[in-house]
């Protein structure tokens, strides 16, 4: 569907996007993740042909966006960060204009506009001026615009920013529904959104691609790396630590800084890789008459993965949590 090869954008000396390459396959939702200023919007603007690239190319269905822009743009619907709406128009007028601009046949325009208004739920607002619509509705009109012509690919730049919680849920549902007929790339820095909606995740930071993999793969990998178990145990701290240390498979143990008032101790146990020590911990502490109040083996959330991936190698806290994500993940790097 979309092939991005060595895409680079330089603004003077500043490199906003640095040799990014990835492929987008049909029928999936891709999450485009990265901290602010990582180059997400710039990349999306280049894929859609809004701005030119300094280097590299983008092929949409085999058509180069810079060489054959008209053909390539036909199969893309784009909702930019700020929906490109004309404030002095009504949604209906605007969508008719956009449909005509996209080269939809004259006799189909009316039914198509009707259809996308239905899908995005803006039919009730059709005769109001866009400047009088709320942010949520403007976003929907923007999305309706992207859907016109039923392009195979939808590119959505932060589609839920500025919406209220109910609207966010609706928007996500809408995006999920669109999955059947469209390939979707959506950028966001709301991580739950990505983990809820997307199949594949593309992470970029500082203009560079750090990971491009399925969500399942990414979380499995980072789960493997998570060897910590958090415990809250009632009893004497020394006894507990001694007892835990003797359990087979425990690599290290320490009491966490914050102490419980109720005579309980919070401890963090690090296990050796590939061993489940939770049962042995339970019996050991039970024998020592130190009841376990709670035990958690935290799964890494996408948030942690994201933080790990986008951590600058030269930050002051030293070692990155993942030694080198590039070794572990199949990262396509230009």
């Amino acid at each position: 569907m979309i092939e991005v090869n060595n895409l680079t954008k330089k603004y003077g000396d500043h490199t906003a996007v640095d040799h990014i390459s990835f492929h987008v396959k049909k029928g999936k939702i891709y999450g485009f993740l990265g901290p602010n200023g990582a180059g997400k919007t710039t990349t999306m603007n280049m894929i859609t042909g809004y701005i030119g690239a300094t280097e590299g190319d983008v092929k949409v269905n085999g058509h180069d966006i810079f060489e054959e822009p008209e053909l390539a743009k036909k199969s893309i619907g784009y909702l930019p960060e700020l929906p490109p709406l004309y404030m002095e128009m009504t949604p209906e007028e605007y969508l008719k204009f956009a449909a005509e601009l996209k080269g939809v046949e004259k006799q189909k325009i009316k039914s198509m506009v009707e259809d996308v208004m239905q899908m995005t739920g803006v039919s009730d607002m059709r005769r109001r001026l866009i400047k009088n619509l709320s942010k949520g509705y403007r976003q929907r009109v923007g999305l309706a615009q992207a859907l016109l012509g039923y392009p195979e690919i939808l590119i959505l730049d932060e589609p839920t920013v500025g919406l209220d919680p109910k609207q966010i849920i609706e928007m996500r549902q809408l995006i999920k529904n669109l999955k059947e007929n469209h390939t979707i790339i959506l950028s966001s820095h709301i991580l739950t959104e990505i983990s809820e909606v997307c199949d594949e995740v593309i992470i970029i930071t500082d203009g560079k691609l750090v990971a491009s993999d399925s969500l399942a793969n990414l979380s499995r990998l980072s789960e493997l790396k998570n060897n910590q178990i958090n415990l809250t145990v009632r009893g004497n701290e020394k006894v507990i630590l001694e007892c835990v240390r003797r359990v087979n498979g425990v690599k290290s143990v320490k009491a966490s800084v914050s102490r419980n008032d109720s005579g309980a101790v919070d401890i963090i146990v690090e296990r050796k890789a590939d061993m489940d020590i939770r049962e042995s911990l339970f019996y050991a502490l039970a024998n020592a008459k130190c009841p376990i109040l709670s035990m958690r083996a935290d799964k890494k959330s996408l948030e942690d993965i994201f933080l790990d991936m986008t951590k600058m190698p030269d930050t002051s806290n030293g070692e990155a949590v993942l030694e080198n994500p590039k070794d572990k993940l199949q990262v396509k790097e230009g």
Binding site: L71, K73, Y78, A98
Partner: peptide
Amino acid sequence: KQKTDQLLYTSPVK
């Protein structure tokens, strides 16, 4: 200024 040019320049129009 209003960024509506994003619609124009990403549409299949010269």
